[in-house]
Design a protein around this nucleic acid. Structure first.
Lengths: 135, 135
DNA sequence: TCGTTTATATTAGATTACCTAACTATTAGC
DNA sequence: GCTAATAGTTAGGTAATCTAATATAAACGA
C-alpha cells in the first residue's frame, strides 16, 4: 500500500535524474538525446526512416527533423534504396563513429558516478529487475 | 564487466518507457509532465518561482513559461509577497486540486500496469534500490 | 538619503522535440 | 494505365529548455 504509492514517485524522480545526466552528457558537444538514440541505432547498419521512428517510438516527421540535424552535422547520410526509391536509408558516417565512442566514455562516466551509490549486488539486482520492466 | 555496460542501456530504456507513460497519462487532459510537476509542488502550499525552478532543476525562465500556461488554464494563480514585492508566490487553484486527483488515478493505473510485471518482492527490491539511487 | 549592488522575475530570441494534417513521389494492384 | 497504398517530407503548432538582456524591488554603504 505504501509501496504502490512510493514506487511511482521514485520512478519519476529517477526519470528526472536520468534526463539530467543526459544533459550533463551533452556538455562539450552538440548531440541531444534523441540524436544520440538515432545515431546509436543507425550505427549498426543503414536503417529506414520508418524503422528509426518505430525504434524511438515517435512519428515519422520527428525522425525527419532529427535526421536533418544529424545530416547537417555530417553525422549521417541519407541514401535512396535502389529497388524501392521511396525508401530512405540512413547511414552513420565515420565522424559519427568517433563521436559516439567519445560520448560513450562520457556516458559511462556519468552513469558510473550514479551507479557508484550501489553495491555490486544491488547493481545486479537492479539490472535483473529493469530487464523485466523494460522487456 | 557486462553489467557495467548493460545497466546504462537499461536505464535509458526505462527512461524512454517512463516518458511514454507520461504521454499516455496526458491523454484526456492538457497537462504536460513539467506542468504536472509544478502543480504537484505548488499543491502543498504557495511557492516562489525560484523554489519551483530549484525543485524542477531548471532555470527561472522555464518556470515562467510553465506557470504562464498553468495560469492561462486557471490551475495556478500568481500573487505578490507583501513583505518583498519582487517575489511571486504561485498557488494552486481548486480546479488544480481536482485535476491532480484525477491524474493521480490515471497515473496509478499506468504505473500499476508497468509494475504488474514485477513480483511483490521485486517491487520492494526496486523501491529500495531506487531510494538509494535517487537520494 | 542617494546611489550602487544584489535578488527576483520576466521578456526576447534560439534550439529541439514532438504532434497532426496535407502533400510528393513511388510502387503495387487490378 | 488508373487507382490505392506506402515512405518521407513539409507546413504549422505547442511545449520545454537555454542564455542574455531587462525591469523592479530591496539592501547596503557612504
Amino acid at each position: 500500500m505504501k509501496l504502490e504509492r512510493a514506487l511511482p514517485e521514485l520512478l519519476l524522480s529517477l526519470r528526472r535524474k536520468l534526463n539530467e545526466r543526459m544533459k550533463g552528457e551533452r556538455f562539450g558537444d552538440e548531440l541531444t538525446f534523441s540524436q544520440l538514440e538515432v545515431l546509436s541505432f543507425v550505427e549498426s547498419g543503414p536503417r529506414t526512416m520508418e524503422r528509426i521512428a518505430a525504434h524511438l517510438r515517435v512519428k515519422p516527421p520527428s525522425v525527419t527533423a532529427i535526421v536533418d540535424r544529424l545530416e547537417d552535422a555530417g553525422l549521417v547520410a541519407r541514401g535512396k534504396d535502389e529497388t524501392d526509391r521511396r525508401i530512405t536509408k540512413v547511414t552513420a558516417t565515420a565522424k559519427a563513429a568517433r563521436r559516439l565512442s567519445e560520448r560513450r566514455e562520457r556516458k559511462e562516466a556519468a552513469f558510473r558516478e550514479l551507479l557508484a551509490k550501489l553495491s555490486t549486488r544491488d547493481r545486479k539486482e537492479l539490472e535483473r529487475i529493469l530487464r523485466i520492466l523494460t522487456s
